Structures are given as structure tokens and as C-alpha cells.
Deep mutational scan, measured.
Amino acid sequence: LVRYRTISKIPQITLNFVDLKGDPFLASPTSDREIIAPKIKERTHNVTEKVTQVLSLGADVLPEYKLQAPRIHRWTILHYSPFKAVWDWLILLLVIYTAVFTPYSAAFLLKETEEGPPATECGYACQPLAVVDLIVDIMFIVDILINFRTTYVNANEEVVSHPGRIAVHYFKGWFLIDMVAAIPFDLLIFGSGSEELIGLLKTARLLRLVRVARKLDRYSEYGAAVLFLLMCTFALIAHWLACIWYAIGNMEQPHMDSRIGWLHNLGDQIGKPYNSSGLGGPSIKDKYVTALYFTFSSLTSVGFGNVSPNTNSEKIFSICVMLIGSLMYASIFGNVSAIIQRLYSGTARYHTQMLRVREFIRFHQIPNPLRQRLEEYFQHAWSYTNGIDMNAVLKGFPECLQADICLHLNRSLLQHCKPFRGATKGCLRALAMKFKTTHAPPGDTLVHAGDLLTALYFISRGSIEILRGDVVVAILGKNDIFGEPLNLYARPGKSNGDVRALTYCDLHKIHR
């Protein structure tokens, strides 16, 4: 019993810090008490220290592992850092350059016999395009090294910054494609005289377009951006097909006994025919423009016929181009109408809503002055909100995010209106959640004399007048207030005048 009563005193000691020596009952000389009392004092002292730490809000209350900052290894790049964003855009520009100039170089340097010394005699450094290609190869190699040090988000939505895990993730992902696209074939085969082989191998750079397509997928929600990307894709495919079309004609031209190829026909049409040795002929500019003209006309199913396939190889390629053109029509131009419709969806919704308003007016036989006010209010409210119901949009977000959005939407009023000066951010967040926005066209009466005042109004834009009878008592403008002081009276009061809008007004109100 003594032991039980001794232990039962522990909660009292913990909360009230009572010393055991003052209790005459606990001072009985028993061996059990002498053993338990020192333990009680020690526990009391420890609990006292913990309570003191909690009340003082000291940093040592938290466990040590929670006080440590997340460790980022040296030379690790955050995937959302500004440097990584700028670097990704730079790589994107280099990939676009590669997609345009690599097929052009591979096709127009394929057994090209233009006048001038061969590239091997001039030297590697004197070729501007080769120098640019070398810079692109170096940048792609540097990009691989950067990807080995860039964080990523795993399946659990955690940012991984450990170098080993980053390397394994990159090896399992895009490393092989990036490595093949970054191989400097110019340096590996330079001086061997195989410019045709170098041009063909350099087309491996186009593998990076797969990554670019995935990154550009984030802009699919913007109709104008999608339309622009589709047109660029169409032009890029036409450019690639033009390079292939020229390569076919250029390879067949020296081996044909009869002059029936499209390059021969082009030379005869523009007065620059090929001679018996295969030299001469149109310039590279004429060849490229004509090839691009043929691919565009074939892809769009126009086909004027002034550039036509004559050999079997050219006919087979033309059939493939027609098939590609039909697929592009289905996948690209078939979506253009939907994209344009999405661009004008706001206008369509406006006309639909206006039609419903006019049908309501016609069905209920609203008189002319009231009908005009109804239409003007709808037009003004639509121009202010673009038909978007803010309350319906915010309803799907958590309250903390709703408060931040409301604070942002009402920031101008909260910053410049005098009653809100000096208020804490928590108070402003709470008030912003209570605001209701209303609009009024010129001549609209917001409050009639004798109406119950259940709200306090803040003028965000425009001006109003307060009338008693036919006498203008006051004219209020931006950041002015009218209405009933909230919670100042037990019952809502009545208006002693009319409140009429002089201009288009936007008002925020808080109800009782």
C-alpha cells in the first residue's frame, strides 16, 4: 500500500512540481520508500527539464536528425535550378540546329562534286560548318556529364541527390541515346576521305529529338503553341524528305545512260545542264529549293507536275512521300480545326451564355430598361472574369491554397485601402477568403433606401454616388468604403439613402 501511494504521487509531482519531503505519510521509514524516492526525484528532475525545454521552444527539443539540413553532394545540380533551365534551352537550340543542318550536310555532301578544292585539302579548321559541328559534339558530351550530376524525382516524389543513384537512373534511361548522339564521328573518321560515311553517321544526332519531343509535351495545353509546333514538325519532315529526294537524284545521276532524272530535267529547265562528264548542272541553292518544293507539294497532295519522278527509285520514294503525307494530314492537320476551336472556345461560351440571357429575357418578357441593365451587367461581368467562376475553380483546392490565391487576387485593395494598413498577414488572409466580388454598370442602383444592410462594401474600381431623395450626399471612388460596420450592432440596419454607380464599378463586399 505504501508503495502504491508513493507511485500514485508521481503525476502530481510531474505537473505541480511538489516535493515529496513535505508529505508526512511518505516520510515513514520503510525500505521500499527509501529505494523508490531517489528514482522519483530523478524522474521528476528529468520531466521538469523536458517541460522547461518545451515551454522555452528551444531548438534542442527536436531530434538531432530533424535539425540537420538535407545534404547535397558537391557538384550536384538541382533539376529545378536556373542554371539547369538555361542549359536545357541551350541544348534545345543545338538539337534544332542539328535537326536542320545534319540531314542537309549528309545529303548535299554525298558524292558532291561542286567546283573547288576537296575538304581534305583545305583542312578541318577552315570549314565553318565542321567547326560548328565540333562545338555541338562537345556541348552534347558536356550535357552527358551534367546529367550524371543532376537530381531527379523518383516514384515516391522524392528528390534524389545521391550521385550513385543518379548515375544508375541515367544509365537506365537516356544515357545510350545521348551517348550515340554525342559521338564525334568527324574526329574519329577525319582524314579518311569518307565524307559520305561521316554525313550518314552524323544523322545519329537526330535521336535527341525524342527527348525534345517529350520536353515539349508540357506545352500541349496551349493551343497556339501546339499549332506552332505542328507546323514546325511538318516543315521539318518536309526538309528531311527534300534532303533524301536530292540524295536519290544525286546518286543516280552519274550512272544513268539517259538523262531522265529530276536533276537533269531541272538543269535543262533553268539552262544549267550537266555536261557529258557529269559536272556542271544547277547550283546547290536551286537543287535544295526545288527538292523542298517537290516534297511540300507531295505532302499537301497538290502535285503540280513541273517536278516529277521519272526513275524507279524516284517513283518509289514519291509513293512513300504520299503515304507520309496522308498520315500527316490525319495526325496534324486533322487537329488544326480542334485547336482553332479551342482557341476561340471563350468567344463561343460568351455567345452561348448571351443567347441564354436573351432567351430568358424573351421568355419572361423583361421590360426594355431592365433588359438593357441585365445585358450590360452580363457584358461587364464577362469582360472582368472571362466567364470563369472563381468560386467553382477554387473549390477543388485546399483552404490554405485558397487563402493564398484570394490574398493575391485582392492584393491591390488590401495594400491601398486604409482600414487594412497594419493588419497582420493572417488577418488579411482571413479577410480575403470572405470577400465576394460584384460588378455594376453605370446607372445601376446597388442599394435602395430602406434596404437591409448586411454587408460592408469596398470599391475596387469606378465611382458611385450616394443620394437622399434627389440630393447627392457624397461621391465615392476607388478604395472608399460604404455599408454597415460589421458586428457593431446586434441587428442589421437599414439604408438611409440610395447608392448608384456612376461608372463601371468593381466592388468587394463582406457579409455579416
Rank of each mutant, 00 (worst) to 15 (best):
E64H: 09
K66W: 08
K66C: 03
K66E: 07
L67S: 03
A69T: 09
P70E: 14
P70F: 10
R71S: 10
I72T: 15
I72E: 15
I72Q: 14
I72P: 11
T76N: 01
I77H: 01
I77W: 01
H79I: 01
Y80D: 05
S81E: 06
S81A: 12
P82L: 08
F83S: 08
F83G: 14
K84I: 04
V86G: 05
W87Q: 01
W87F: 03
W87T: 01
D88G: 01
D88I: 01
D88C: 02
W89Q: 01
L90R: 01
L90Y: 03
I91T: 06
I91V: 14
L92H: 03
L92Q: 07
L92T: 01
L93E: 01
I96G: 04
T98E: 03
A99G: 04
V100P: 01
F101N: 03
T102Q: 01
Y104Q: 01
S105K: 15
E112L: 06
E114I: 09
E114S: 07
P117M: 15
P118Q: 15
T120L: 04
T120H: 04
E121F: 07
E121M: 06
C122R: 01
G123P: 05
C126S: 01
C126F: 01
C126M: 01
P128W: 09
V131Y: 04
V132T: 03
L134K: 05
I135W: 03
V136C: 12
D137M: 01
I138K: 01
I138C: 03
I138Q: 01
M139R: 01
M139E: 01
V142I: 15
V142R: 01
D143P: 01
I144G: 01
I144R: 01
L145G: 05
L145D: 01
T150I: 01
T150C: 04
T150A: 03
T150L: 02
N154M: 09
A155G: 14
N156Y: 08
E157T: 11
E157A: 14
E157Q: 14
E158A: 13
V159N: 01
V159M: 01
V160L: 01
V160M: 09
V160C: 10
S161K: 05
H162D: 12
P163S: 06
G164T: 13
R165L: 07
R165K: 14
R165W: 09
I166Y: 01
A167Q: 01
A167C: 05
V168K: 15
Y170H: 01
Y170V: 01
F171I: 14
F171H: 01
F171V: 13
G173T: 13
G173N: 09
L176A: 11
L176T: 14
I177N: 01
V180C: 14
V180A: 13
A181S: 11
A181M: 01
A182I: 06
A182D: 04
F185P: 01
F185A: 04
F190Q: 12
G191N: 07
G191A: 05
S192W: 14
S192H: 14
S192F: 14
G193Y: 13
G193S: 10
E195W: 14
E196I: 11
L197F: 05
L197H: 04
L201G: 01
L201W: 01
L201T: 05
A204D: 01
A204F: 13
R205P: 03
L206A: 04
R208T: 10
L209R: 01
V210G: 11
A213M: 05
L216R: 04
S220M: 09
Y222C: 13
G223T: 09
A224S: 05
A224V: 14
L227K: 01
F228Q: 01
L229F: 11
L230I: 10
L230Y: 10
C232L: 08
T233R: 04
T233K: 04
T233M: 11
F234K: 04
L236K: 01
A238H: 01
W240N: 03
W240I: 03
L241E: 01
L241T: 04
A242C: 01
C243R: 01
C243S: 01
C243D: 01
I244P: 01
Y246V: 09
A247V: 14
A247Y: 13
A247I: 09
G249Q: 03
P254R: 14
M256N: 15
D257G: 14
S258M: 11
R259I: 03
I260M: 10
I260R: 05
L263R: 01
L263T: 01
H264G: 01
N265K: 14
L266Y: 03
L266E: 01
P273I: 01
P273K: 04
P273N: 03
P273Y: 01
N275R: 04
L279Y: 14
G280C: 01
G281A: 01
P282V: 01
I284N: 04
Y288G: 01
Y288C: 01
V289A: 01
T290Y: 01
A291R: 01
A291E: 01
A291P: 01
L292S: 01
Y293D: 01
T295Q: 01
F296H: 01
F296A: 01
S297G: 04
S298Y: 04
L299K: 01
T300Y: 05
T300K: 01
T300E: 01
S301L: 10
S301N: 04
V302E: 01
G303Y: 01
G303S: 01
G303T: 03
G303V: 01
G305M: 01
V307N: 03
V307Q: 01
S308M: 01
P309D: 01
P309T: 01
N310C: 01
N310D: 03
N312T: 01
M328P: 01
Y329K: 13
Y329L: 15
S331T: 11
I332F: 05
I332L: 08
F333I: 10
G334L: 03
N335C: 03
V336F: 08
A338N: 03
I339A: 03
I340N: 01
Q341P: 04
L343R: 14
L343E: 03
G346K: 15
A348G: 07
R349V: 08
Y350E: 01
Q353H: 10
L355C: 13
R356G: 08
V357Y: 04
R358S: 10
E359P: 03
E359W: 01
F360Q: 01
I361A: 11
I361F: 01
R362H: 13
R362E: 04
F363Q: 10
P367E: 15
P367Q: 09
P367G: 06
P367K: 13
P367R: 08
N368R: 09
N368L: 08
L370T: 01
R371F: 01
Q372E: 13
R373Q: 12
R373F: 01
L374P: 03
F378K: 04
Q379N: 04
Q379C: 05
H380C: 10
A381S: 10
W382N: 08
Y384A: 11
Y384N: 06
T385H: 15
I388C: 13
N391A: 15
N391G: 12
N391L: 12
A392L: 08
A392K: 14
V393I: 07
L394V: 04
F397A: 03
P398I: 01
C400D: 04
L401S: 01
Q402T: 03
D404E: 03
D404F: 01
I405A: 02
L409F: 04
L409T: 08
N410M: 06
L413Q: 01
L414S: 01
L414V: 07
H416F: 12
K418V: 09
K418W: 06
P419G: 10
P419L: 06
F420D: 03
R421V: 09
A423L: 08
C427T: 10
A430T: 12
A432G: 06
A432H: 02
A432F: 05
A432L: 06
K434L: 03
K434N: 04
F435V: 07
F435Y: 02
K436I: 13
T437H: 11
T437Y: 12
H439V: 13
P441Q: 06
P442T: 03
P442F: 01
T445L: 12
L446S: 01
L446H: 01
V447N: 03
H448P: 01
H448V: 08
